[in-house]
Design a protein around this nucleic acid. Structure first.
Lengths: 240, 240
DNA sequence: GTGCAGTGTTAATAGGTGTTACAATCAAAT
DNA sequence: ATTTGATTGTAACACCTATTAACACTGCAC
């Protein structure tokens, strides 16, 4: 029951942040803290977490935009916290894929309760997390990708280095195996903030990935191009 | 267990109030809450408390005036909390008879520590509940760092020497474990006077630290780089 | 003084990101 | 089948950030 207790708190008011951290630590969570959208995305890229507590009012980025970017790269449980009373925000947040929604001020006990609920819901009978693809190792062709340690191993178990953008793109494709992802969706998966690079960037990263992954990069079998639509991961996968 | 664990929290931000309450309750205190100077004085008149946590920024009354009024009727321990940075406030508050003074945001652990200190001091000279200064020894991976003696011990308890800058940087990171610290914040931690060295200095000290701490300095696991943001201490820690 | 440890700067290097230009390819119309 | 315009692939490049070695400077101990 207790393996997945890493909680990431995204909150810009430092005092609230520290109080939440101290409180959750006492409840036995391992807490990580970020105070901006930029940090948040960097943190999610560097280390998987079991649950995200997201304050919609981060200074540098609209919370709902962040929510979309998060959902583009993982299905981790997210609880949205906001000072806003608006009903629209609530609906939008839930539409964007938030799992729960609380308006500040709220009772810390209730908060911990909902966190506990969400975590227990996302844990299967075997104690493995259902939600987090990041707790999985996936094999395809000669490769095995570990979404947890963010590493890619070749057939001899040697690690092949991927850049952040390359890994995120591959992870997004693997998570949506056999589904077509548009360039816009893939952009969400690789971009850190809202400074969206052009969609051609996706082509470039795809090319770099293919050069590393494909036996014959000219005739790709793993990442297929869907002309006019996007790309599709189309190798058989085996989840470990 | 001592009977005097009733704490009164005077704080107008409702969320902060609830977080503080939940936190102190977990620490075994019986908590009462007020959110205005008016309520505060009424509460003090009707029910004795063992300690007051007073936010200077209450809406209806200047905190320093309140402080004087409180002292006019009791000698109960008071810790003043404020968002203001001003040195004058601090001096005035202490002059007015506050027992301690903390600037928000502050570490909740420190807050509880000071509350404990103050309460045990006010118990009397029997020495029963004298507060033991919490040891500041923290273990991570094969290392243990003692923030009091400023020493770092390896797995065999041999001391590994760190320069002042190295130690301060490491201490700052450890104290903010799992939080991202910007180069600017880390600069504050290592520079003694106000002559700020350039932020590249941080990279240099980080490199020197990694060479001493990390198993594989090229693939650091203890101090992680957050590109474009700063650094983060990300090894599990255990406080002794 | 001389030597030494530590501090901080600088510059070379490495690696990643994103743009652009042009080549290659595709798909639809003729 | 050929043409044509749109789309995709990729090399080359500019730019950015982080890493690290080298070095000069400072202050301190002997």
């Amino acid at each position: 029951m207790t393996a997945n207790r890493r909680i990431l708190i995204a909150e810009d008011d430092e005092f609230v942040q520290q109080l939440l951290a101290a409180y959750f630590q006492q409840e036995g969570f391992q807490v990580s803290l970020v105070s901006s959208g930029h940090e948040l995305m960097a943190m999610l890229d560097s280390e998987p977490q079991d649950l995200l507590l997201l304050d919609l009012g981060l200074p540098d980025e609209d919370g709902l935009v962040l929510m979309r970017q998060i959902r583009a790269r993982s299905s981790m449980p997210v609880i949205v916290l906001t000072a806003r009373q608006g009903r629209e925000d609530k609906l939008t947040a839930l539409e964007m894929g938030a799992d729960d929604y609380l308006i500040k001020p709220c009772d810390p006990k209730e908060l911990v309760l909902r966190v506990g609920n969400l975590l227990s819901r996302s844990v299967g009978a075997d104690g493995q997390s259902v939600h987090l693809p990041s707790s999985r190792i996936i094999r395809f062709e000669d490769w095995s990708i570990n979404l947890d340690s963010r590493s890619l191993l070749d057939v001899d178990n040697n690690e092949v280095h991927l850049s952040r953008a390359e890994f995120n793109l591959l992870a997004a494709l693997v998570n949506a195996a056999n589904r077509v992802l548009s360039r816009a969706q893939l952009l969400d998966a690789i971009s850190m903030d809202d400074s969206s690079p052009s969609e051609r960037m996706i082509d470039v990263v795809i090319a770099r990935l293919r050069r590393k992954l494909e036996r014959d990069p000219k005739n790709p079998t793993i990442i297929k191009t869907m002309v006019g639509i996007g790309y599709r991961f189309s190798a058989p996968t085996k989840v470990e």
